[in-house]
Nucleic acid binder design. Structure first.
Lengths: 341, 341
DNA sequence: ATAACTTATTAAACGTCTTTAATAAGTTCT
DNA sequence: AGAACTTATTAAAGACGTTTAATAAGTTAT
């Protein structure tokens, strides 16, 4: 699409994102940065200010002439709702456009019989109590294809459900639905400034290891939404990654420390480097510590030239997951909502 | 950017691509498909016809009313130049907008001392002889970062050279520079209709195997342009992919047939599936035949659930490489050239 | 053959963004 | 304090795409 309407949308979106990301701006700065003429920026900002979407911060120090007016986004103008569907419970968070958490709550898990209906009721209550909510993001422990739950082991009643479509229709607000690992890697991605990077977020949880992967700024889903199922990577004559981590026993340690674990992960890192050569490799902070990470790094470098190894980082999974959902929320907010006449 | 100028560009680009991809169109079809109003399409087409960029094909059969005029792109309006820098020789191809080859030639390799100067002279001659050339793409056996040759083993005099910038400045036409494997996977991608897919193009050449990887429609380059260096993937207790293919001897067979080769490749496929889960896996036609491919497929499925295996295809590497460069050429043509007032 | 009906194209009026010029506000130098 | 100079903002004119209405071209039925 290339017409005046889409142009208006693009302008509004670009102003919103720069204001939200940059903190504050003057009209001239926006005009300059976005390649939009001053009068146009002026008109949009006037409308947005009248609507309460932006707030004047007063005048800048003079740079030799008339002082410029500075504007900032009003974070309370719209709120977002993030919902985490988990096995044992369902958490939700209400936050403003700056990502500041306004309210947090927990209800019993909706991943059970008649869970959809239950979830709908909960959301209804939350939205009625917080009418400023303009979008929501739902994280689910399963594969998601454009808002449709594609595969969700253990909770078959949610399978093939177009959750996004259903709730967008029901609540008339934009909705994002995303897999938990993908949301986490997305969240981590957005907390860093460097964009367009490739990330791998590894967690070696109890029910099999998994990885969230991001390349060139987009989440990798795979043809069958099977990407990141690293447990199947063949690593030794007779063992794949999963088997190597198990080391013959039926269970797994919570934290990683044993030599066989280090070598398995080291090999996995090497495989990732040889295949996609990511910028950063993220481990979960409750699974590895700094010392282990150093050992893994050393181990990987026996398989692959050390200069090509990624940066090793620890991430707070829970936190990144929340950030990811928040970001999805904000994205659809910035993109879809238009209160301008 | 969001302003009238960028809009004009977008409109022109979208008309060009649909005309080139779809073969031919009427004004109404374009207006409909692109979401651009009829009068605007009309105006653009009028300009383009006057300029010789499009040609009228006469009138459609009537669908009950006045017959619509049908237009097609004039393939000879612009030509593209693809140049392949190889160890032993330098090939070039001149083709029109439909990808039809107009001329082909070969000169001695420029990958040697003072090669840049030599290449420049060659290009100068070609362009003078074919003044309709409006863009060029250069394929190089090395890592390329936004037109700059980043790493090119064996030809150090080309290292850190911004070939794209240099020639764009010198010849005043848009230039694309791309790694050979990446160009091949891009070429394969564009020969298929299904878009937004993930592909892996594997070749197990003499000087170590390599893979071109495409995910979500973009080429994967990696943080250090090291992606696809699959030789380093650890596969057995004591062997990585490269060593497994060698099987202890110092050399490699041209075609793949031995059991140890099948298992190594089967494991590599499994690793790819577990990590990025691609739609399609492409082998070079001179390296594997159908029977071998079936064996590999069977072998992979011992490591990973068969339903997640990608489609297996054979590709003509040389051909796909050419297509890739052609596509890069066409892309910059469609994107950058604007002969409209 | 002509009237009634479809569909394609052209023309005029309107909205939106940009460019350019004019005005307002602030700073610095004398 | 006032003139000269910067810089921000507003206003008017111009460019471009869309919408809506009018016209041209073709088909079908009587």
């Amino acid at each position: 699409m290339a017409n005046p309407k889409s142009m208006k949308k693009m302008i509004l979106r670009s102003i919103r994102t720069t204001l939200l990301e940059g903190g504050s701006s003057t009209k001239a700065e926006l005009s300059d940065k976005l390649g939009i003429s001053f009068p146009t920026v002026s008109k949009f900002l006037a409308d947005m200010e009248k609507d309460g979407e932006i707030i004047s911060l007063g005048l800048d120090e003079s740079s030799g002439g008339r002082r410029a007016k500075r504007y900032t986004y009003n974070p309370e103008y719209m709120l977002g709702l993030a919902i985490f569907l988990e096995k044992s419970e369902t958490n939700y968070t209400i936050f403003n456009c700056f990502g500041e958490i306004k309210k947090q709550g927990k209800v019993s898990s909706v991943l059970k019989e008649d869970g959809l209906h239950l979830l709908t009721t909960h959301i209804e209550e939350i939205i009625t109590a917080n009418p400023k909510i303009r979008s929501m993001a739902i994280g689910v422990p399963g594969a998601v294809d454009r808002g449709r739950i594609f595969h969700i082991p253990g909770y078959e009643q949610f399978k093939d459900l177009d959750l996004k479509g259903y709730y967008e229709n029901y609540f008339s607000i934009p909705v994002a639905v995303e897999n938990d690992m993908n949301a986490a890697v997305l969240g981590y991605y957005h907390t860093r400034k460097r964009k367009d990077q490739s990330l791998v977020y590894l967690y070696s949880g109890q029910n099999g290891p998994g990885a969230g992967i991001m390349i060139n700024g987009t989440v990798v889903r795979g043809s069958m939404f099977f990407s990141g199922e690293v447990q199947f990577v063949p690593q030794y004559n007779e063992r794949n990654f999963q088997e190597a981590l198990m080391n013959g026993s039926g269970t797994r340690n919570e934290t990683i420390s044993e030599k066989y674990e280090i070598d398995a992960i080291g090999r996995l890192v090497a495989s990732f480097v040889a295949i996609i050569n990511p910028h950063t490799f993220i481990f979960c902070q409750d699974e590895v510590n700094e010392a282990t990470m150093d050992k893994i790094k050393e181990n990987s470098s026996t398989y692959i030239p050390a200069e090509h190894l990624p940066a090793f980082q620890v991430g707070d999974w829970k936190q990144d997951y929340l950030f990811g959902l928040q970001n999805l929320c904000l994205e659809v907010m910035v993109d879809k909502i238009s209160n301008l006449s």
